[in-house]
Write a protein that binds this DNA or RNA. Structure first.
Length: 815
DNA sequence: CCACATGTAAACACAG
DNA sequence: GCTGTGTTTACATGTG
């Protein structure tokens, strides 16, 4: 735990504290008073004992195998806010899963380090990469091309060389003035730096270099390798451009049909697109390997770096080429490109005329645009329109559904997905339009339904499709990670395995269906930073990670995690399928179940069913938790038993439920600014956003109509739209939509329940209620109007947002 | 140390 | 007698 604990998330500190206590207890032997009536049930918190086992286990997560350890370490240090994703990029994780992902990182690094310690054959740390090349499959192409993977291999060696140079520079004082500690730590490695290239291993480098050194080294590596990689791709692009232009000249000379020219252009454009995608993929692979964490000059802006990777300027140029009528000047311009450089470099980069082969390219859909004749134009239009229709119906991710919904609002809202910042956002256009009317005019004139627009649309579809494929891969990998982390195979859970297996696929599907916020969106969608939010619990509790070994106290989680409604809404599928104990008290769960019911009343059996339906965890040990449910129902005055015709049902007395909380509770959160601050910084913006959504949802906002809530949500979320919190405008915009959708949907649900203030619900059954104890006295301070005030007040400060994370109405603060 | 919340177990009563 | 429901008590644990 302590050996490579790079990041210790703040939100884990409480749990670490628990673990320490537990270990103390364990070292002192079991407490005398603990009963273990049903075998296997240990004292609460026993799960923490397994945490250590897991992190110290030698097996290690599979990710370690394909991650070069040193670089993983460096990447984790350089970008602790980034999380590894499957296809090779680092997603900026700004979400409640941050802690888990960081833990993943730590575990990864730990086990990776273990690997390298136990496998001396991994000497230069490069071998894993070449064996890890995936879809590209370009490992030594038969046609003699040097694949990008090979290039990476080369570049990694160069990186190691650079590392040695770096060491030498540092040691000989040639480098820029470093910190004292850097020089100090270099006293030892001087001899190491003199080693031959094959003798210095990443492990040694890790031991040699201090974190600042590693960071500097990594930056050098990144700059160098990225430069080389971009150079390589640029050359390929140039060659393609040349090819394209030569073709154009020939065609012009031969006075061929313009349509044919367009189609051939399109073919080349698609080749370029493929190359762009390949480039992007490899850059992202580099990022994943930790070789290229961030692009130069964008070190502090990972989201932008990601966006740039996904939409490089060359792509814009590409679009312009497609969009623009080929001019006579262009060949001249491109002829200026250094052909000799190409040919001379072709010895090292013998890749050449053909674009990199993408064996799995799924996008042409059987239609080679090279051979799309003019007479098929109508068919093409038909195909595109059918595709678009299909996409909007079922194929699109929820996010793109949200985007597709925009045109519906565009008339009155004055926004258009293709219009922003006074520019036409049509790919490659960037025409300046002063207002929406001008833009619409421009759109109709310049981007009407013709060959060009069709081709552009088609290319864009390919881009989207590619990203969706990538999304699927990412989701799959994430699910595998989640499965690995949550469902330890050490515990046989008969009902669990098939569910989890199914969930992998079903989640992928449901991701796009059920969750408006969406799951790992492609990086083009700037919603990516918050994406893993919906995949797992907002905060993965200890029991989540280490299996339901025993009971844990959830009071802490109940207080500080996101509200139950939000949490459940977000992670419904997760809890349904994973044998993970929900981080809520029985009381809150029961209340939620009851409030979720159409009549806001449930029989005991229905409550049982809700538990088993919603939580895989409650499909076992039924006697225990059912007893607990009954115990809670009887114990808490907030649960009111109502005699019904068919029997008895249980309802919730919200007033009592609020009273159940001691006044210190709100004082806890609002009176503990450091905790709030830590939570904000520790969980990240995504969590804050989610939490705030949840607060909006579950808290007092359900007193308002949907439009009010939408406005509140928007205004409040726009409050979060600050550069310090979100680096990308698109990200914040997307978040805005996310919040909007979330709140709206919840409002809809609340409204559909036909209920108003939850505090009034018990009175509906006033004549039937069998009050268990003394009648509940109405509290003067619990009024909706005050709630309105409190909400608007809460919108003013981020700390107050955190106070809203308290899942219930903060009655105490209305003084 | 204390009060409180929570989880768990168990005993008991009652009804079907 | 069994089962489900509901109540109550006891104890352990965590937290403030």
């Amino acid at each position: 735990m302590e050996k490579h604990c790079i990041v210790v998330p703040v939100c884990l500190q409480l749990r670490l504290r628990q673990r320490q206590r537990l270990r103390q207890r364990q070292s002192q032997g079991p407490p005398p008073g603990v009963r273990s009536p049903q075998g296997g049930r240990g004292p609460p918190g026993m799960t923490w004992g397994r945490c250590g086992q897991q992190t110290e286990s030698s097996a290690g997560p599979p990710l370690a195998e394909d991650t070069e350890p040193l670089l993983a370490i460096c990447a984790a240090m350089l970008a602790p806010h980034m999380s590894l994703s499957s296809a090779g990029q680092y997603y900026p994780i700004v979400c409640p899963l941050l802690s888990t992902y960081r833990r993943c990182h730590v575990m990864m690094v730990e086990s990776a380090t273990e690997n390298i310690r136990t496998t001396p054959s991994n000497q230069n740390g490069v071998s894993s990469l070449s064996s890890q090349s995936d879809s590209g499959g370009s490992n030594g192409d038969a046609n003699g091309e040097i694949s990008p993977v090979d290039l990476l291999h080369l570049q990694q060696q160069q990186a190691l060389q650079a590392a040695r140079q770096f060491l030498l520079q540092q040691a000989t004082g040639l480098s820029s003035p470093g910190s004292n500690e850097v020089k100090q730590s270099l006293q030892v490695p001087l001899s190491m730096a003199m080693m031959t290239p094959q003798m210095i291993t990443p492990q040694q480098m890790q031991q040699i270099l201090s974190p600042p050194q590693l960071q500097a080294l990594l930056q050098q590596q990144q700059a160098l390798m990225l430069q080389q990689l971009q150079e390589y791709y640029k050359k390929q692009q140039e060659q393609l451009h040349l090819q394209l232009l030569t073709q154009q000249q020939q065609q012009q000379a031969g006075k061929q049909a313009k349509e044919q020219l367009g189609s051939k252009q399109l073919a080349f454009q698609q080749q370029l697109i493929q190359m762009q995608q390949l480039q992007q993929q490899h850059i992202l692979n580099l990022q994943r390997q930790g070789l290229v964490g961030l692009q130069p000059g964008q070190g502090a802006v990972p989201i932008q770096s990601l966006q740039q990777a996904m939409c490089p300027p060359e792509l814009q140029q590409l679009w312009k080429d497609v969009a623009g009528v080929p001019s006579a000047e262009e060949p001249v311009k491109h002829e200026g490109l250094d052909l000799s450089t190409n040919s001379s470099n072709s010895t090292s980069y013998s890749a050449s005329k053909a674009s990199p082969q993408i064996s799995h390219h799924p996008l042409t859909n059987g239609q080679n645009p090279l051979h799309t004749p003019k007479r098929d134009r109508a068919r093409l239009f038909e195909w595109i329109s059918s595709f678009t229709k299909e996409s909007s119906d079922e194929h699109l991710t929820p996010y793109s559904k949200g985007s597709s919904a925009h045109p519906q609002h565009e008339e009155h809202s004055g926004t258009h997905p293709l219009y922003g910042h006074g520019e036409c956002k049509w790919p490659g256009c960037e025409a300046l339009c002063e207002d929406m009317g001008q833009f619409l005019k421009h759109l109709n004139n310049e981007h009407a339904l013709d060959d060009r627009s069709t081709a552009q649309c088609r290319v864009q579809m390919q881009v989207v499709q590619q990203l969706e494929i990538q999304l699927a891969k990412e989701s799959e990998r994430l699910q595998a990670m989640m499965t690995h982390l949550h469902m330890r195979p050490s515990e046989p859970k008969p009902f669990n395995q098939p569910l989890n297996l199914a969930s992998s696929a079903s989640l992928l599907k449901r991701d796009s269906e059920a969750y408006p916020e969406g799951l790992p969106h492609p990086p083009t969608s700037a919603a990516a930073p918050i994406t893993p939010l919906r995949q797992g619990p907002s905060v993965i509790s200890s029991s989540s990670l280490h299996g339901p070994v025993g009971p844990i106290r959830r009071r802490n989680s109940d207080k500080y995690c996101t509200p139950i409604a939000s949490e459940l809404a977000q992670n419904c599928e997760f809890y349904k399928n994973a044998d993970v104990r929900p981080p809520f008290t029985y009381a809150s769960l029961i209340r939620h179940a009851i409030l979720e019911a159409p009549d806001r009343q449930l029989t005991l059996n229905e409550i049982y069913n809700w538990f088993t339906r919603m939580f895989a965890y409650f499909r076992r040990n039924t006697a225990t938790w059912k007893n607990a449910v009954r115990h809670n129902l009887s114990l808490h005055k907030c649960f009111v038993r109502v005699e019904n015709v068919k029997g008895a049902v249980w309802t919730v007395d919200e007033v009592e439920y609020q009273k159940r909380r001691p006044p210190k509770m709100t004082g806890c959160v609002s009176g503990s600014p450091t905790l709030v601050k830590n939570m904000i910084s520790g969980l990240g913006f995504g969590s804050l956003n989610a939490s705030y959504q949840a607060a909006l949802t579950e808290g007092s906002l359900n007193l308002f109509n949907s439009s009010t809530m939408a406005a509140l949500a928007e205004s409040s979320l726009s409050l979060l739209n600050s550069p310090s919190l979100v680096n990308s405008t698109g990200g914040s915009l997307n978040m805005l939509h996310v919040g909007h959708d979330d709140v709206s949907s919840t409002v809809e649900q609340v409204n559909s329940n036909g209920s108003c203030s939850p505090g009034l619900s018990p009175q509906q059954y006033g004549h039937q209620i069998h009050v268990k104890e003394e009648p509940t006295e109405m509290e003067e301070d619990c009024r909706p109007v005050s709630l309105m005030a409190s909400v608007s007040h809460n919108l003013s400060m981020a700390a107050d947002m955190e106070r809203d994370m308290e899942e219930e109405l903060p009655t105490e603060e209305l003084e």
